[in-house]
Amino acid sequence: MILGKVFISLTLERFALVLKEYPDQDFVTYFVDGLTNGFHIGYRGPEFPRETPNVRTAFDYIHILRKYVAKATAGKHTVGPFDEPPFANSVVSSIGVRVNKDSASRLIMDLPRPEKQSVNDFVTRAD
């Protein structure tokens, strides 16, 4: 089970208790359930596994990318990498590295790719 490997500092029972007097209890129920079981993001697209290749900078700066992945997994708020997809219909987005003029870098998660087939393309936008 993947969720058993992830650390979150929020105690859901305490969180719900603190919000027991909150005026919109339907929202509290929705929020606690979402934190427990995952939020539905409004995806209305095809359900098949797909993987978008990483952008060139992921390979050009592999040493930087490895540091980002190591830090994220050590903090236990991110799990992986996986040898096999963890879910039947996993969608793997590409990643890359952006190096600024001052030599600082940041991880780029390229979620809008591939064009017209990304997860974002099938999520209904709120008005």
Rank of each mutant, 00 (worst) to 15 (best):
L10V: 14
G75R: 13
A126F: 08
E51S: 08
N54R: 01
A72G: 06
A74H: 12
T29C: 07
D102Y: 05
F122L: 04
F122M: 03
P53I: 01
E47C: 12
A16N: 11
A74I: 03
K76Q: 14
N37F: 06
K5V: 08
T52D: 02
Y30T: 06
Y22V: 08
K20I: 11
S103Y: 10
K20G: 04
T29H: 11
V55M: 05
A88G: 09
R50N: 08
F59N: 04
D102V: 05
V79R: 05
V69H: 04
E84P: 00
M109Y: 08
E13A: 15
K71M: 07
F87I: 07
L35P: 02
V18N: 14
N37L: 06
L111D: 06
I62T: 10
G45P: 01
T78K: 13
M109W: 09
P49K: 03
I2T: 14
Q25Y: 05
A126S: 07
T73R: 00
T29A: 12
L65Y: 00
R14Y: 14
F27V: 09
L12W: 11
H40P: 10
V91I: 15
L111P: 07
F15M: 14
G45L: 05
P112K: 04
E21V: 11
T57H: 03
D33P: 01
V91D: 01
E47I: 09
V18Q: 12
S118A: 15
D127T: 04
F48W: 11
S103K: 12
V6H: 12
G38V: 10
V91W: 11
P85I: 01
D24R: 11
P23D: 06
L3V: 12
N54Y: 03
P112H: 02
E47K: 13
L65R: 00
Q117R: 12
Y30P: 02
G45A: 08
G38E: 03
A74R: 14
A104V: 09
R98H: 12
L35K: 00
S103T: 13
P114D: 06
R113K: 12
A58V: 02
L3D: 14
P81H: 07
R98E: 11
Y22C: 05
D121E: 06
T57I: 00
P86D: 06
V119T: 06
A88F: 05
I2Q: 14
V18K: 14
L65N: 01
R14F: 15
T78N: 09
V18R: 13
F31Q: 07
R113D: 09
G96I: 03
F82G: 06
A58G: 01
S94T: 03
N89Y: 14
G34I: 01
V97T: 03
K71Q: 10
V92P: 02
A70H: 09
P112D: 05
A126C: 05
T124P: 04
R50A: 03
K20P: 01
R50S: 07
V6K: 12
A74V: 03
E47T: 10
D121P: 00
G96D: 05
D60F: 04
E21L: 11
A16Y: 02
L3K: 15
V92M: 09
R106Q: 10
T29I: 10
L111G: 08
V91S: 07
T78V: 15
